[in-house]
């Protein structure tokens, strides 16, 4: 059994270019979904901590359901049922059916899943901020939005960063699930390359190395961020 390394070449006879394009798509979805998840998470965390009774209960339902149902099922559900629902609403409003962009749908799906997890991470981090600091901001007459931007968010980052790093790893790995709905990110591109050449083993190993590379580099980046965020704090 010989390994044909030429299959990994970047230019067309090799399939390396397809894999790298898949990696770029994977990273686009992961970054987009992660940021969307963070936005949902910040809103969700503040809703859960300071919101009214109804919004608190609804957010509890959201986080519980998303965390209890497999990501794969959620992705298939949002991808197919979500687009169908959107098209029905469009039809009811008298517009033509739209074809949902795969990238946007992927980002939406990953974002909704990530949002539930980051809500919990950020809620824990916000609760770890000493209440006196927020009270001091109020005493200085800061409106809530300013106090959020200047005090609560910066002060909670050291507590949130390890949980957020974990979520980023989950986001990069969850993008692989979009392969199941036929979206060509890294894992699907790898399977296509393997299917065309029958060199499944080589391509899956190569893709594994790419994922691992992303994980290891992100680890370094998050470690650096954590060191910077924790500067001036006592060592744990």
């Amino acid at each position: 059994m010989r390994i044909d390394w030429a299959l990994l070449a970047i230019s067309p006879p090799g399939w390396g270019g397809l894999l790298l394009r898949g990696l770029v798509t994977t990273l686009e979805i992961a970054v987009g979904g992660y940021l969307l998840g963070l936005l949902i998470g910040i809103g969700g965390a503040f809703g859960k901590l300071y919101g009214g009774a109804v919004s608190r209960d609804l957010l509890e339902c959201y986080t519980t359901i998303v965390r209890a149902v497999p990501e794969l099922v959620l992705i298939v559900l949002i991808y197919y049922a979500g687009t169908d629902l959107l098209n029905r609403v469009m039809a009811a409003l008298g517009y033509a059916a739209v074809n949902i962009n795969g990238l946007a749908a992927g980002i939406l799906v990953i974002g909704v899943v990530q949002g539930a997890y980051s809500t919990e991470v950020l809620r824990g981090a916000i609760r770890a901020v000493p209440y006196g600091e927020i009270e001091a901001a109020r005493a200085f007459g800061m409106p809530s939005a300013l106090a959020l931007r200047r005090i609560t968010l910066p002060a909670m980052i050291p507590h949130a960063i390890s949980g957020l790093a974990n979520l980023w790893m989950i986001a990069t790995k969850d993008t692989a699930l979009l392969a199941v709905v036929g979206f060509t990110e890294l894992t699907m591109a790898t399977r296509e390359a393997g299917g065309a050449t029958k060199a499944y083993f080589l391509f899956f190993c190569a893709a594994g190395m790419l994922y691992l590379l992303v994980t290891l580099i992100s680890n370094q980046v998050f470690n650096a961020i954590e060191r910077r965020a924790r500067r001036g704090m006592p060592k744990v």
Binding site: T172, K173, A176, T190, Y200, F204, G208, L212, T215
Partner: peptide
């Protein structure tokens, strides 16, 4: 560091 789906397909 790698997705489970990739491990499974590998």
């Amino acid at each position: 560091g790698t997705p489970l789906l990739l491990q499974l397909w590998l």
